[in-house]
Amino acid sequence: MELLFSFVFVLLISFSMFFSGKVFGPRKDNASKKEPFECGVEPLQKEVPKNYSVHYFKIAILFLIFDIELAFLIPWALAFRKNPFLFFVVMVIFQAFVLLALFYAWKKGDLKWGI
């Protein structure tokens, strides 16, 4: 219920901000406003390129690996006091595999941003 209320309240605030500019603001149009903003220079190419660097995709994959690892780690951290030694050994083995993956990506050059 609290989550619902706060969503309602925050959405109210953000929508009022969203529409306030349309309600209160002036409306003046001119031709240069219709162009993409590039510091007043004529745009060199009209189309935005559709393809992007594959590096970003690799970073996203790494993020997925580590976020799933985080989902394993949080319950592990909470239950750690039940049997510290066993949990510690398990975590060393698990982290060794995960760090292996990170170092593999590192050595393959996935973390290197070329110039």
Binding site: S20, G21, F24, G25, P26, K28, K33, P36
Partner: peptide, 8 residues
């Protein structure tokens, strides 16, 4: 609040 809200 009183600035123009322009949608390109």
């Amino acid at each position: 609040f009183f600035k123009e809200d322009y949608t390109p």
